[in-house]
Simulated assay, not measured.
Amino acid sequence: MRSKKTIFFILSLSIFSSMLGVGVISPLLPTYVKTLGATGIQLGVIFAGFSIARAISMPVIGKASDLYGRKIFICTGLFIYTLMSIGYALSKTAFQLGTVRFLQGFAAGMIMPIATAYIGDMAPKGKEGTYMGYFYVAFFLGFGIGPLLGGFVSDYFGMKTAFFTMGGFNFIAFILAFSLLPGAEIHRQGDKAHISYITMTRESELIKGLFTFRFTNALARGIFACFLPIFAGIKLGLPGSEIGILISTSFLLNGIFQAPGGRLADRFSRRRLVVLGIIVDILCLSLIPLTNSFGQLLSICIVSSTARAICLPSATAMIAGEGKKYGMGSSMGIFNMALSLGMACGPLIGGLVSDSIGVKFTFYFAAGVELVGILLFAFFTATKMDRR
């Protein structure tokens, strides 16, 4: 049996490689969709289809992994991801690309919740924050470096080469997971892993609170990622290079700060860290419309990244605690489903706000959503002052 450190390293390397591949195409996909003649509505459907498919599959796969083991699902997800990467390059119509995106979203539902369930299985009691923090470093660094690599590959070798690059990185992740991850060696079912999601959410106020936090935070993040480049480019007139620095800085610093954020989660009240991180993020979102320079926006991105790195490991550690009761896969499945739903709804709702009253109000709306979310989180978790 491999040591926990070895398994953790293999899993983190697999996720880093997979997210690096996903990040490679993130700045290229809108342009590629347009070359296939997609309308604005089709573009929205293609992007939303991924998140919808992922949201549907996550809770189903999460519970199945509690019953049948983790490895088969994460390996299957990575392999389908590899095949769908080839599908991007072979797509000739918007419908074909939309189908590929939907199937890839389904595969994505087998990767992240299962990976975090593996980590939750391994983490000793009281060390969940540290384990989750270091894991998220691999996740965010992969996704943050990917766009930089994707731009280089596309510029010098063509856009379709970038899709094959994504497939290559995910195939490497598949080989690592298939060859080196354990099957049932560290897998533990919760005492109540057999119960339904309805019963689980009815019993656990903590799960209600964490789902609310994850959904509203993801919705706000979706608005931020979608409309910050628009605000910076159109309202402030920043060049593409500076906008790229803003986005990359946000992802990379968020990744780097996950490790100390995880250590904090094991030393202080996780509930209070979540509340603190979101309050700071609300202030950052509210200040974005008031900025008038690159330096001001960059400062906000740095502070916001730090705030998110404080709250995410704490929240994931809290859900891992519930996972030991209700099944780690089930708990991580519903937690990550909230992420997918929020990321799907954020750009759509933000678009309505932007079209109705202006792009700067999307950030005020995002701040308001996070405020409602953190108030509900505080209400649901009021009797759980510290889940350690």
Rank of each mutant, 00 (worst) to 15 (best):
S3Y: 09
F9H: 11
S14E: 01
S17D: 02
V24H: 11
L29V: 15
P30A: 12
Y32N: 13
F50V: 15
A53C: 15
S57F: 14
S57A: 15
M58Y: 09
L67W: 02
L67F: 10
R70H: 10
L90Q: 02
S91Q: 03
S91D: 13
T93W: 02
A94D: 01
F95H: 04
Q96D: 09
G105A: 06
A107C: 03
M122Q: 06
A123D: 05
F135I: 14
V137Y: 03
V137W: 04
F143K: 05
M159R: 07
T161S: 00
F164H: 12
G167F: 03
F171I: 12
F174S: 08
P182Q: 02
A184V: 15
E185K: 14
I195M: 12
I195E: 11
G233A: 08
L236R: 01
L236K: 04
F251E: 14
L252T: 10
P260Y: 05
G262A: 10
A265F: 08
R267D: 03
V274W: 10
L285M: 13
L287K: 11
L287D: 10
S299Y: 09
S299W: 10
I302R: 01
G321I: 01
N336H: 10
F361G: 04
T362M: 03
Y364F: 07
E370D: 06
F377V: 12
A378L: 12
F379V: 11
M385T: 15
R387L: 14
